[in-house]
Simulated scan of single mutants.
Amino acid sequence: MATETGRWAGVIGLGSMGFGMASSLLRAGFEVAGHDPSPAAQDRAREAGIAPMATAEDVFAAAEVIVLSLPTAAHVLDVIAAAQDAGQLGANARARVIIDTSTSEAEVSRKLSAALDERGHGFLDAPVSGGPAGAASGQLSVMLGGDEKWVAAAMPALEAMAAKILHVGPSGAGNVAKLVNNMLVASHMVTTLEALRLAEAAGVGAEDALRVINSATGRSAISEIHYPNWVLPRSFDSGFSTGLMRKDVRLARELAQSVGCAMPVADLVAELWAEENSGLKDADDFMHMGDPAADRPSYKDSK
C-alpha cells in the first residue's frame, strides 16, 4: 500500500490512547491504518480519516511502522504471533518496526526484540505518559528502550506522537522506567490523599493545603495536575483505570522481586490500592483513590 508520501503507519488498539496517537500521526502527514476489536472504535477511526482494518494482520500488511496500544504483555504477544503466522515478520518480509506503547514487561520486550531483530525487524518498548489529552495533542512523553538503528527508523512516528522522547537504554529499559514512574504515581496518590485528609481534619481545606504544597517541596504531578483537574472538581475522568494502576504496581513489585530489590513502601501501597482496602473496582478511574471525602476501609479514623 503506497501514497504520495509513502508513509504508512499502523495503530493496533484504538482506545483513548491509541486513537489519540493515530490522530497525531494523521496530522503529521502519515496515512494511518488502524484496528480495534470494538466496532465503535473502528467506526470512530473511519470518521477521523483512519483506515479501519478488519484484523491486526491487515495493519501489518499496510504499514512499515506499527504502534501497539494494548492492555497487557499477553495481548502484545498475541498480536506479534498472529503477524508471524501470517508471514509478515519473517526473514524475507519487508522490514517493519514495532513501537509498543503498552506498559508491558521488560523481559517480554527483550525476547521479542531479539527474535525480531534476527529476522530484520525492530521492536521498541515505548511506554508513554501524558494520558488521552497528551495522545490527542501529540504531546506525550515516551520512555524508550531499544537499538539505536530501530529508534532512528521509528523517530518520524515518535516525533509525531510525542513532545519528549527519552531513549533510556536497550530493549526493556523503557518498560523499567515506566514501571518505576507509575509506582511513584501510585505512591504519590496515597501520600497526597493522606496529607489532605490530615489538613482537613485539622481545619485547613484541601484547596488551601494544595496551594501550599504546590508552592513548596511536597508537590508532585499528582498535587499539581491531577488534583486540580480531576479530584477537586470531582469529575474523576482522567482516562486511566484503577485496574491498570494495580497492574503497573504489581509489575513493578514483580520486577523488584526478580532483581532482589526490597520495596516495603511499594508493598504497602499495593495493599492500600487493593479493592478490599480502597473500595475501588478495577473499572473505576484511578483518580477516585485521591478523594479525601471517600469512606475507605483503610482510612477509618482512629478514636
Rank of each mutant, 00 (worst) to 15 (best):
A93S: 15
S102L: 02
G130N: 02
S141Q: 05
Y299T: 13
G6S: 07
T103N: 11
V32H: 09
A54I: 02
V76P: 06
S187P: 06
S102I: 10
I98K: 00
V212L: 13
R96K: 10
G203H: 09
P264D: 11
L198S: 13
P39I: 10
A173R: 02
L255Q: 14
E47L: 05
A61K: 14
A201E: 05
P39D: 04
L77G: 14
G131Q: 03
D43H: 14
M1P: 03
E224K: 12
A54K: 12
G279A: 08
G13F: 07
F286K: 02
V76D: 06
A73P: 12
S23T: 15
D117N: 12
E4R: 14
V32P: 07
I222C: 05
N229A: 15
L244K: 10
S187G: 07
M1C: 10
A270M: 11
A162G: 06
V204M: 15
I98Y: 00
M143H: 07
F123M: 01
A162M: 06
R110S: 07
S171E: 09
E275Q: 13
S16T: 06
S16N: 12
I50E: 08
F19R: 12
T217H: 13
A81I: 15
T55C: 03
G172I: 13
N175E: 14
R110T: 08
A2D: 14
L196Q: 03
T55S: 03
E224W: 00
G134N: 02
A173K: 05
S24W: 04
L210S: 15
H75Y: 09
R46C: 01
A114L: 07
G18V: 06
V128D: 01
E4V: 14
A173Q: 11
A199P: 04
A252L: 13
V176Y: 01
A201L: 05
L268E: 00
D285V: 05
F60R: 02
A202E: 13
L210V: 08
I213D: 14
F30D: 08
I50D: 04
A256V: 01
A221K: 15
T103M: 02
G134S: 02
I222W: 05
L196M: 03
I99V: 15
T192W: 06
M21T: 11
G122C: 00
G138K: 11
I98M: 01
L198A: 14
C261T: 14
A114Y: 05
V204G: 10
K303C: 08
D301P: 00
Q84G: 15
P37V: 10
